[in-house]
Simulated scan of single mutants.
Amino acid sequence: MLQLNIKDETAKLRAVVLGTAQSCGPTPKAEDAYDPKSLEHILAGTYPKEEDMILEMEAFAAVFEKHGVEVFRPETLEDCNQIFSRDIAFVIENKLIKANILPDREKEFEAILHVLEYIDPQHIIHAPEEVHVEGGDVMPWNDHIFVGTYTALDYPNWITARTNKEAVDFLRNQFPDKTVKSFELRKSKNAKENALHLDCCFQPLGKGKAILHKNGFLVEKEYQWLVDFFGRENIFEITADEMYQMFSNVFSISPEVIVSEKGFTRLNNWLRGHGFIVEEIPYAEIAKQEGLLRCSTLPLIRE
């Protein structure tokens, strides 16, 4: 059996579900794009090729292997994009919560049922239908749970709005001993301004550090709350272009070890300057779908 345990974003990782780029299907039609960045690349003819994305994901898997992490992969579904396993479920403490994602992505969850067999069924929670939530918007951080949300009245009109007010209430009920802190995210049809998930504009790191992008937040005082929480001197503030490139979507294997995209020179130098070990891998093709390293993982067990 797998004894689920996730209390934060950085403790030493023991087991993870890493998505797969196998059989991810042809380039989608423009009208089927889920986010503005994918749409941009579909229209420009630069949408990533399956073989390139497979190579990038294998590089990620190799880093996990090097660090002794047990890696599970989804069953391959024909012509289905299964790269972003963070969207389909997430773990807090010893509970795995199935995300209510876009309906046509439901089968992605079924592709990890072979992993769920190792988890006590009492620890698998299906959120009620009115709760919209994706793992990219949910970050357990010790006695806090940080949640990215969008609660304006036009919520139903935004395909990029993935986590609603009901999700925040649901998490408060599920984890009454934690402080659930929500942040309103900026939704936009412009990929350079759209914060698809909280992890597109914020990421806590080991050593008390964090990555942040001010314009990803709709409410300045919510952004300021994070600055005060971590301390301005501990924050790597990214530009709009760096948010677009997904600089905040790196992944911590431990408090010291961070997997990052090899092209993130400014960030990687800063991380090394603060004593982190940076495992650089190519991930720029996958980034074209408005998701990166954190999005591709579903951590199950950290120490």
Rank of each mutant, 00 (worst) to 15 (best):
I277M: 10
L198E: 06
K98L: 12
Q289E: 12
F217L: 09
Q3M: 06
D120I: 02
D8R: 03
L113V: 06
W141S: 05
A21N: 08
A44I: 00
G208E: 06
L39P: 00
D35E: 12
E106Q: 08
P74H: 03
K165A: 15
E40V: 05
L218Q: 15
V71N: 09
F251A: 02
P26E: 15
A161N: 03
D177P: 00
I258V: 15
N5L: 00
R86C: 13
Q122L: 12
R294M: 11
R14E: 08
G136F: 05
Q174R: 06
M243R: 12
D154N: 10
K12Q: 11
P255N: 05
N249E: 04
M53H: 01
K181E: 15
L185A: 01
G273C: 08
H144S: 09
E280P: 00
P204A: 11
P103C: 03
E31R: 01
T151L: 07
L271N: 08
H123G: 09
L293F: 05
H126R: 09
V259H: 04
D104R: 09
R186Y: 12
E110I: 07
V257H: 04
K165C: 09
Q224I: 05
R162F: 04
L300G: 09
A167E: 05
H197A: 00
G135N: 10
L267G: 04
L205E: 05
F229S: 03
P28A: 05
A61D: 15
E285L: 05
E220F: 10
H197Q: 10
S254L: 06
Y47M: 05
P28E: 01
K262E: 14
I6F: 00
R302F: 07
L102V: 12
G263P: 01
D8P: 01
K37F: 07
K37P: 03
H41S: 12
F276H: 08
E134K: 01
H123C: 15
I54K: 12
K181Q: 15
E166Q: 13
L102C: 04
R272S: 10
E220W: 00
K189W: 13
K49C: 01
R14P: 00
A127T: 11
V16A: 03
E110L: 13
